[in-house]
Structures are given as structure tokens and as C-alpha cells.
Write a protein that binds this DNA or RNA. Sequence first.
RNA 1: GGUUCCGUAGCUCAGUUGGAUAGAGCAACAGCCUUCUAAGCUGUGGGUCCCGCGUUCGAGUCGCGGCGGAAUCACCA
Length: 607
Amino acid sequence: MLSLQAEICYKKMEIVLKGKIKEAVKILYNSEVTDDLIQIQETRKDFKGDFTLVVFPLLRFSKNTPENTGETIGNYLVDKFPAISGFNVIKGFLNLEISDTWWVEYFEKMAFEKSHLENCQVSNPETILVEYSSPNTNKPLHLGHIRNNLLGYSLYRILSACGHKVVKTNIVNDRGIHICKSMLAWQKFGNGETPQSSGMKGDHLVGKYYVLFEKEYRIQIEKLMIEGIDETEAKNSAPLMRETREMLLKWEAGDNEIFDFWKMMNSWVYAGFDETYKKLGVDFDKIYYESDTYKIGKEIVLSALKENILYRNDDGSIWADLSQDGLDQKLLLRSDGTAVYMTQDIGTAVNRFNEYKFDKNIYVVGNEQNYHFQVLKALLKRMGYKWADGLIHFSYGMVELPEGRMKSREGTIVDADDLMKEMQETAMEVSLELGKLSDFSEEEKEDIFRKIGLGALKYYILKVDPRKNMTFNPVESIDFNGNTGPFIQYTYARIKSVFRKAEQMGIHAEQGTLSEAKIGIKGIELIKLLRKFSETVSSAATGYSPAIIANYCYELSREYNQFYHDYSILGEDDAALRNFRLVLSRLTSEVIFTGMWLLGIEMPERM
RNA sequence: GGUUCCGUAGCUCAGUUGGAUAGAGCAACAGCCUUCUAAGCUGUGGGUCCCGCGUUCGAGUCGCGGCGGAAUCACCA
């Protein structure tokens, strides 16, 4: 049946409707309408219909009341357009009803397409670098890093799914005064302790000495202040700080002993990080080290100075004047010639462009650095790098606890490893209490607990709009009911369970008989939601927001659970209807799986 | 003080380019397991969308001005 309906099946209904309405206005009112005046949206659930035309903008052509205009256009459409089975007008809204046949036909095409991501493909794929994680090597990863890593990794999957070539990068901040602090404290108080000898994860071990440094340092400062020295001077002249600076100078001078020591401690940290990344399920294609890139930045700054883009102060320090861009003066090289943070970021950016010729370079970095990236971009453009337009600061909000911000002084830092472990343990407790997994081996159970615990954590973090600051409530995060990761996983596992049962009964989902089925209202609701998947992924990609997909997956799961509750699938006697429900269930599970995959969340087959 | 971001139910959050009676979850209360997984479903209560003005047929959404909060404006990274 090559009807009008078949012709439009694969296009977006909205676009086809727009054309028809344009035609209607031309014939009925003898007027040409521009596209932007034809506003079509999905009909709200509390009204009858599928698509709604807002008629207010068309009144200037009809010169009639909203009701009459809607009525007239509605009649025209029903008459000329078989897919529309009826309409109603409420106030200035024309609600159009699409025939069940159209929906089923549309659904059948959608259900059997090869990939649910086909419609998300961009026409002009780009090379995109995504930088995330960016840890310091003086302490372990914490909750803030988790948000960063999850966002970065998910962004990678979403952009890749849309056809872009995405490179995951990580820049490790492996040099500087803070590293020397851990090193010095270990030298003084460590007694040769290693990850092997202590049984501690390397990053935690090094972090322990960083904390120890800060503690001892503070004691020294207080002592000096009691002796009558003011705070700034005390901070400067405390013996520990002096020794740290000496160590940094030795490091920069390439002192072999210090360098080897630095390498050894960093290698402990990297081993620890690797473990955490693996557990979290993220990885990188290319890792940059600041100890390699800061020198490149230095050279660039010096040559820009020659070209008079920058200026030198009396004390020898080098600055940029960005007042024309509405920004301030920015230091790029200290008076002693050493590099600052901005210097190395310039080096890294140039280095990366030379290597990848990227169209976009996305920095997943917290919003506390908004100013930094504004300056970076302005500077690079000033230096004549046109590609600097492709630098994007993906600025995400801070993670706070119900009591406020995490503070290391108050010991309120939530450690990444601890958190993941706790989530998994909670998943275990809940699962064991429900007792649905008695026939599983210990290993299989562990895997399920891991998926659920991590799924809960990841979803909890990713469902929030990345730009906004979020509150991490430990009590709420281990709730597995409602708008949570496990709820979505549960929906998926339920569908899988139906299919296992179907297998036993010898029932298979088939193509071709769907049009005979009488689908219920919940079925159409589901189809409507399913067709929005690809546009959801597209807008998540253009808006850099995994949260859009997370909330979509939740909405879809909720809708499916209602469907599941209201109708029996395998118990249905009408074979065509049973088949429709099976296919619908399968499609739902596939879309949920794909959506959650884009978030980096694994799905258990049973739970 | 300058800049940027945020302000929606008791709490945590959704709310597409402005559209109809602003939605979920948690918490509270009341129901639903002899039937495909109750980590589910249904119902009840809960709102000055921070305030004011403006643009518009129409504003949670856009503009201006306040108020409140966060970040930042380092020879830290």
C-alpha cells in the first residue's frame, strides 16, 4: 500500500503537517505563510489528539476567530490528508488526531531499523577532542572528579554516536609546588613506605602525605605567628615551605635524584588512578602531561612577546593586556621566568591542534574556571590562531553536600573509590533482601551488584543539568526507587525476563503482522516517546547535555512500566496483538539500552 | 566593586524555538502481588515559578531594574 501514509512514514510528521497547513492557508485564505508562523507541537496529554497547531499566528490571514479558523483548517486537513482521522479545537489550539493505522505503520518501520542512532548522524562530521578528568597527582580522585569523568565520557559517546570523530584526552597536572609537598612529606615522615609495603592504593598513599604536609605546615605557621611574625610572612618562611620551594627549583633544574623520586611517586599515583578509571568505566585515547607541555607554552609566549602582542614589566615578568576584550591584565611568565597555569594551557592547545587539526576542542572543566578559559581563548585569538574559535569550555557546576561545599580541612571530601564501593555494597544489600538472585553464582551476583551500584551513582549525577551546581545527598543517592538508575535498569531487566519466558514458550517477535493489531492508547503513547529518541540524542549532542538523555530514559521507563502494568504481553490470545506488544517491548528495551549506553551505564539482564 | 552562572512543591530536580489547567521523584497518607520481576503500578495532599516593570493575543521561558546565592577577578593549579 503505497499510500500517502507510506510516503510520509519516514519523514517527521511535523514537517509534513507544516506543508499541508501551508497549502491549506493558501487555498483557504489565499495567503503565503512563512514557516515560522506555523507552530506545531505535540498535543498535551490531557487533550484528545496527537499534534497541535497553534492558530493564533494565522489569524491575520483568516481574519476570523481562533475557533473558526481552527475549525476551517481542521476540516480541510481531514479531507485532504488520510493520516489525520479527526480533530478538535479548544481555544486557539487545533488538535489533530492521527489514525492508528499510521502509527502502526510508522512503528513497524522504526522497530526494525538497523540502528536507533541512524537519524542522529550529522551531515558534517567533525574532529572533536574532549578533555576531561585532569587530575592532580598529589591526591586521589573525589566526587567532583566523578562528575567530571562521567560527563566527559558520556559526551564522548554521544558525539561519537552522532558521527563525529572524537578523541578522549586527559591532561595530568603532574608538576608544580603541590606535588613537591607530598614528596617532601614522604621524605621526612614516610620511612620508605610504599604501596606494596602498606597495602594502600598509590594515590591514597601519596594523598596521605599531602594531608600530612598541610598539617605539619600549619603547625609551623602557628608557631611563627606566636613569635610575632605576621601570617603572610609566616606562610612564606616556614621551613617546610622553604624546603618545598627548593625541591621545585631542583626539579625544574633537572636534578636527577629529585626527578627519579618524582617519577616513582607519580607512578604510584597513576597505578591508583588506573584502577579508579577502570572501575568507573572511563578511559582515554591520549594522555598529556603538564611536565611535557609547559615548555611549549613558554616558547610561544616568548615569541609573541617579540611580535609585541605581549609586554614585559619592569621586574621582567611577561603580561598580556586583554582590556580591549573586556578582560584584565594577565600574567604569563613570572619574573623568574617560570611558567604559570595559563602558559602551559596555551602550549597544550597549540600542541593539540598541530597533532589533530581539530574542529572543536572541548574542555570539561568546572565553572570555577570560566574566567580562565575566556582568557585562554582571547589570548590564542590575539596570537592569531583562528582555530581558537573551536575551543569550548564545557563548564559544569560544582558538587556540593547537603552541608555545603566539600572541604579537605573539614574532612568532608567524598573519595571516589570509597563512594563506588559503598554504592556497590548498598546494591548488594538491597538485592539480597529482595532475594531474586538465588540461582546465581557469587561471581555473577557481584557483577550485577556492580552494575546496579554504579548505575545508581552515574545516573544520580548525570540526570542533573551539567551547568548547574548539584547537591549530592548520600541518603538519596542510595535510594533505588523512582527517578533512579536502578529503576531504569529494572525496567530493562523486566523486558528481558519477558523474552526469556517467550523463548521457553516458543514465541518470537515477528515483522509483518503489526498492521492487524489494535493497539491501545498506552501503546501509542509509547510509540510517540520512542520516536523522540533520535532527536533527544541530537539535542544532547548539540547542547552538550547527557542529562537530556538521562531524563528521556526515565520517562520512557515510566511509560513502559505503565504499559506493562496495564496489558498482558504473553498472556494475550490475539496473536497479532501479542506480537505488537512483544515488538514494542523489544524496541523499548533496545532504546533504553542505547540511551543508557550513551551515559556509560551498564544494564543487567536480571536483577 | 567588575564579570559569569543560578533562583520552580518541605527536599532533589524536569520544563525544547514564548503557547492550553507548571510536571516527576523523594518524604507523608490511602490502595494494588493466585496472573510476563511489587527495585513496579494507582490515588490524595502539597506552588506568589525570588520580587517589580516592560515586550506580546499569550511569559517559568525574552528585555530592563532590584533581592538572594555561587564562582571568579593570584607571580596557585
